[in-house]
């Protein structure tokens, strides 16, 4: 056994001769050749680290198992929905897409299909992709900490225009989260990093990307919830607890 060598041992034969139970180096370090053309901006900070094997893998396994336990429990008590045989001549009312598309379907109720079905999802995906390439969040500065007046002016102009746009299309469902977000942003504009309350301080520190993403999350949650639970025949309002 002791004579056995791992292929890696060629690199530094001495250190790895005794493959079995070798504690020759307490903490193996990774050697990386970073040339000028390598884009990776890896920077090492010395801080406590754990071996992935076995500690992290165990934790991963436990996490997955706990999830599996929860899902198995759900599956034991709740049956997956199944309705009658597919029939092209009998349209259920309402015909609903899977829940994660109901936000889109809700928009489809207000806008022409080209806008709600094509434009909006395409823009969302594009926006998500370009996020890391526009350094919008890299500086991580509060939105209103610099150029306060100018930014406030732009903020109000954009907000009001957008709200009017939503009003014109009668998209009350999307308007409510927008108004709440705008209100929070306006509140954040009154705060500074030196404000007394912690909440105000943290609001003041939020960059533009945070606000946009939060607004998107808020809209997504509200539209999906409305589409899933509060829409009935003819896409009219219903209350889920009253069938």
């Amino acid at each position: 056994m002791t004579n056995e060598k791992t292929p890696d041992s060629k690199a530094s034969p001495k250190s790895f001769v005794a493959a079995v139970a070798s504690d020759a180096r307490k903490s193996p370090v990774r050697v990386a050749f970073v040339t000028r053309r390598t884009s990776a901006q890896v920077q090492a900070y010395d801080e406590p680290k754990l071996q992935s094997f076995p500690e992290v893998l165990f934790r991963v396994a436990i996490a997955i198992e706990v999830l599996a336990i929860i899902l198995v429990l759900i599956s034991l008590f709740f049956n997956a929905p199944l309705e009658g045989l597919a029939d092209a001549s009998h349209t259920p009312n309402p015909a609903k897409a899977p829940w994660y598309f109901l936000g889109l379907q809700e928009l489809l109720h207000y806008f022409p299909p080209v806008v709600a079905g094509v434009l909006v999802p395409t823009l969302v995906v594009l926006a998500l992709i370009v996020i890391p390439y526009f350094n919008i969040n890299v500086e991580a500065d509060g939105l209103f900490t610099k150029d306060r007046d100018k930014r406030l002016r732009i903020f109000w102009a954009v907000s009001v225009t957008f709200c009017v746009f939503l009003l014109v299309f009668d998209v009350i469902v999307a308007l409510v989260p927008t108004l709440i977000t705008v209100a929070l942003m306006a509140y954040a504009a009154t705060a500074t990093p030196k404000s007394s309350s912690k909440f105000r301080r943290s609001l003041a520190a939020k960059p533009l990307s945070f606000w946009i993403m939060s607004w998107f999350l808020f809209e997504l949650a509200v539209l999906t919830t409305v589409g899933t639970l509060f829409r009935g025949p003819g896409w009219s309002w219903v209350l889920p607890w009253r069938s």
């Binding site: 791992t6 890696d8 020759a24 990774r30 801080e47 680290k49 754990l50 071996q51 992935s52």
Partner: peptide, 24 residues
């Protein structure tokens, strides 16, 4: 040993997708 634990990751076709060490 730490070495063996590192190798368990590095020498496995699936696990080597993961980093050998993780910040605590």
């Amino acid at each position: 040993s730490t070495l063996r634990n590192s190798m368990a990751i590095q020498q496995n076709v699936f696990l080597h997708l993961l980093p050998t060490k993780v910040r605590t």
